[in-house]
């Protein structure tokens, strides 16, 4: 059953208002604004405790399907969940402390999303929150789903995405794709992260779990690379590495090998290497950035780094119902003629 954009907008605004009011601590009335503009989406907290929800500019004359409506409301409630239950300050501080590590940011996000959604459901601030969150998750997962793995299980950049999906599965959602982490070489770390995150009561503890997961992932990578090097040395066949390897792996290897590799190795890695001193962290950052630039899929097969936040795929799920033009805002004054 479809509704037109005009009513969909009003329904979303009314729902958002109800959720904000239901979640408010008595005596702290928040102001809220729903802004329909452009193609982006998100929630910001401004001055005077104002919550601004930005959503794509839905066309008022377009027909909005029930699933699109559910995705929009679900997204709004999810974002409000962050406002209500996430300690953004602690999150930013942790990422800053780790030198702006993108992977840590993603891991925190992947673990935090299922937690805050569970808080919204348990808190009872939105009656059918679970159904709405399921709609959002399905729209993200089924976007380019071809029936295979929803993500490459061994890609370190997608562990955060797996946390976001599997954490929601543990919340009891009906997830339309089978899990893949059991076939991952990081299975034990993913299971550790999921188990620990289930016990967390706030963002601060989620951050410590994410940091521990990151430490274990780095350690595992080092071990794997050491094994690989030993194998190569035993075979007596030095690997001729090409320049198109990911920055992540190259930096890891560089960090391990350092100067011991000699001039030949250094020469091979020119162009992609950031040097020994910059270490693993920078390498990961570079690798992640490359993944982002290549959008959702990396060349060479398999799924690339997938966006955790539903806002990334929101616009795609609303294709055809977003108004490219901003219509004038209308203010009406009604007047009666008075014969005097």
């Amino acid at each position: 059953m479809n509704t037109i954009g005009l009513y969909a907008k009003r329904g979303i605004e009314a729902t958002f208002e109800k959720v904000v009011r239901a979640a408010d601590v008595p005596g702290t009335q928040r102001r809220f604004i729903v802004q329909w503009s452009g193609t982006g989406a998100g929630v910001t907290i401004g001055e005077q405790n104002t919550i601004r929800l930005t959503l794509p500019n839905l066309s008022e004359s377009a027909l909005i399907s029930r699933s699109q409506f559910a995705v929009l409301v679900g997204f709004a409630v999810h974002e409000f969940g962050h406002v209500r239950y996430t300690d953004i300050g602690a999150w930013n501080k942790a990422v800053e402390k780790a030198g702006g590590d993108h992977l840590l940011h993603r891991l925190i996000n992947g673990l935090e999303d299922p937690r805050i959604e569970q808080e919204v459901i348990v808190g009872g601030i939105c009656a059918n929150a679970r159904n709405l969150f399921e709609a959002v998750l399905s729209s993200v997962l089924l976007k380019d789903y071809d029936g295979g793995d929803y993500v490459d299980p061994d890609d370190i950049n997608n562990i955060a995405f797996q946390f976001a999906v599997e954490g929601r599965r543990l919340n009891g959602y009906s997830v339309p794709v089978p899990p893949v982490y059991r076939r991952s070489k990081y299975r034990d770390i993913i299971e550790f992260g999921l188990d620990e995150a289930r016990k967390c009561k706030g963002t601060v503890t989620i951050i410590s779990v994410a940091e521990e997961v990151l430490r274990r992932l780095r350690q595992r990578q080092q071990e794997q690379q050491q094994e690989q090097q030993q194998q190569q040395q035993q075979d007596g066949q030095p690997e001729d590495r090409s320049d198109d390897q990911s920055g992540d792996r190259q930096d890891q290897q560089d960090g391990q090998q350092g100067d011991q590799q000699g001039d030949q190795q250094q020469g091979d890695n020119d162009g992609a290497q950031q040097g020994d001193q910059q270490g693993d962290q920078h390498g990961d950052q570079q690798g992640d950035d490359q993944g982002k630039q290549s959008l959702s899929k990396k060349p060479g097969g398999g799924k690339g780094e997938l966006e955790i936040e539903p806002s990334a795929s929101l616009f795609e799920s609303l294709a055809g119902v977003v108004d490219s033009k901003v219509r004038p805002r209308v203010e009406t004054t009604r007047i009666k003629i008075q014969w005097s």
Binding site: V326, P328, R329, V330, T332, T333
Partner: peptide, 16 residues
């Protein structure tokens, strides 16, 4: 009658 711009329409609606 009223004022009109691409971003904002201020409408005065006289109910006859």
């Amino acid at each position: 009658y009223g004022n009109s711009s691409p971003a904002f329409d201020k409408v005065n609606l006289i109910e006859l």
